[in-house]
Structures are given as structure tokens and as C-alpha cells.
């Protein structure tokens, strides 16, 4: 059988569309199901109250605040180091066995299961450095988990800035660092921000790394310092889904809904920032 190019195109486009629909349907189904099941639980009290009666009633405020703090703490540790690493790899690192080893480590780090980060954090931060089970230890652990994403997206974004800008910077007497700071980084910023938010988003949703390093099973108050334990949304969800008997389903799905909205709104922010800068970019 011989197909005309036009028919081939139709078939391939059809197949691609089908593939896309197949990917999206489960996503819509999952989110839709959580919204339907959980929307009823959302109320002011649920968002701003303390859990009561063995978490079967009341709100999830400590978990929301804990996740916010952990995300913030993760950002404080991983963003400067991650972007710095990206700058180093893209601009300064020569192609030596050492830098090849660094690159390989970053790629491998990105593939390490998150529970291993949790054990590592327990060993290094909680026990060896004696930070205890604390927001500090959890943030550091999540920070390490986030680093590979931030480093590699930053490096990629910095590399994609045209080389000609760097040459022009040098040609008018700029040092390498001046070129990076004044031309390259501003141009790479949308890509870097996207990477940062994607990395933090992953950290916000992780359970295993915080399991041994920070998360409290039940702690109905807000954390006072970075050496406090705290509840966090993903772990709280795990707890109320598996560890608490006769838990109202609505509260479980309500908690999942809050977590999903939190993560999706970070995602949306990344998209908006990227679109804002893309429109201003001219190359």
C-alpha cells in the first residue's frame, strides 16, 4: 500500500494527538477526583485551624505552615549554591577530568531515590551535626535533593545566552564577571527561575526526605525556630491516609487538594515569569 505524504501526515498527527490525550486524561482524572472528593473539606477553619481529635477534625494549618517554611528553607540553601554551580559549570569550568566527574555526580544525584536523601540527612544533619529533627535539618536535606535540578537548569539557561554578547563585553573592555553579571545572568534569569521553581516544587511535595529529618507525626502548634520539628503537608497526608484509623475521607482528599494547589500555583508562577521575560527577549 502506498500512502500519499498528506495521508502520512494525517496519520502521524492523529497518533501524536492520541498520545497527548492519553497523557492528559489520567492527569485530569486524578486532579478532578481529588477536587470532587476534597473540595467539601476546604473551609476557613480547615486552612487556619489546628488539628483536633487525633487529626480527625479541625484544620491543617501546622502542616501548611511547615511546608511553607521547609520550601523557604530549601530555597535559602539550594538557590545560591545551585545558581553558583550553574555559573561555574557554564562559564568557568574547563573540560577536565575533575569537571567531568562533577557533571557525572550531578546527573547521578538527580537519579538518587528520595528516601536515600532522607537517610543521608538523618546521618549527616540530624545525628552527626546534631541539628536534631528540625526544620534546619529538613531544609538542608531537601536543599541537596533540589540542587541537581537547579544546577543543571541554570547551567543550561546560561549556556543558551549567545556567545556573541560575551565577546562584545570583552571587546568594550568588560571583565568576564562583568559580562556575566550585567548581560548573561539577566538574559538567563527566566530559565534559572523556572529551574528554581521546578526544583522547589519537587522539594515541597516530597515525603521520604523529611520523614527522618523534620516531620512531626502530630504537633498541633506552629514551629518557633529552625530547630523545631514541624508537620508538613506530604507527610501529614501519608499519616492520615495510612496511620490513623477511621479517618474521614474528606479530610484526606482536602489535604491532598491543598498540596496540589500549592505545587500547581508554584508551577503557574514559573510559567508566568517565563512568559513575561520571553516577551521582552529579542534574540
Amino acid at each position: 500500500m502506498h500512502l500519499t505524504p498528506r495521508a502520512t501526515q494525517r496519520i502521524v498527527f492523529g497518533a501524536l494527538t492520541a498520545a497527548m490525550v492519553l497523557v492528559i486524561i489520567p492527569l485530569i482524572f486524578v486532579i478532578g477526583y481529588i477536587v470532587v472528593q476534597g473540595a467539601g473539606a476546604i473551609s476557613w477553619e480547615f486552612l487556619s485551624g489546628m488539628p483536633r481529635n487525633g487529626m480527625r477534625e479541625g484544620g491543617i494549618l501546622p502542616a501548611i505552615v511547615g511546608t511553607l517554611f521547609l520550601t523557604l528553607g530549601t530555597a535559602i540553601f539550594s538557590v545560591p549554591i545551585g545558581i553558583g554551580g550553574g555559573i561555574y559549570l557554564a562559564e568557568y569550568a574547563a573540560d577536565t577530568p575533575l569537571t567531568r566527574a562533577i557533571r557525572l555526580s550531578i546527573i547521578n544525584l538527580a537519579g538518587v531515590p528520595s528516601v536515600v536523601y532522607g537517610l543521608f540527612g538523618l546521618g549527616l544533619f540530624v545525628l552527626f551535626l546534631q541539628f536534631g529533627t528540625s526544620i534546619l535539618a529538613g531544609s538542608l536535606t531537601l536543599g541537596i535533593l533540589t540542587l541537581p535540578v537547579i544546577i543543571s537548569t541554570s547551567e543550561e539557561a546560561i549556556r543558551s545566552v549567545p556567545q556573541s554578547f560575551r565577546v562584545v563585553n570583552a571587546a568594550v573592555g568588560g571583565t568576564k564577571w562583568q559580562g556575566i553579571r550585567r548581560i548573561v545572568l539577566p538574559q538567563a534569569l527566566p530559565g534559572i527561575i523556572t529551574g528554581v521553581i521546578l526544583g522547589l516544587e519537587r522539594a515541597a511535595g516530597e515525603t521520604a526526605p523529611i520523614l527522618f529529618t523534620v516531620a512531626a507525626f502530630f504537633l498541633p502548634r506552629l514551629p518557633h525556630s529552625i530547630f523545631d520539628q514541624t508537620m508538613a503537608l506530604p507527610y501529614h497526608l501519608f499519616v492520615i491516609s495510612t496511620q490513623v484509623p477511621s479517618m474521614p475521607v474528606q479530610i484526606q482528599y482536602g489535604t491532598a487538594l491543598v498540596l496540589i494547589v500549592f505545587v500547581l500555583s508554584m508551577n503557574l508562577t514559573a510559567t508566568l515569569i517565563r512568559r513575561h521575560y520571553r516577551r521582552r527577549r529579542q534574540w
Binding site: 556573541s164 554578547f165 562584545v168 563585553n169 570583552a170 538574559q187
Partner: peptide
Amino acid sequence: RLRQRAGMVFAKPVPLP
């Protein structure tokens, strides 16, 4: 300083962003 004393204009114009 040398590159400020001896400036360069390239074949393809490259305005900075």
C-alpha cells in the same frame, strides 16, 4: 585597557540586549 584603546566592530552587528 587595551580593548578600550583598540575597539572592535564585528561583521554581524551585535547590540547588547
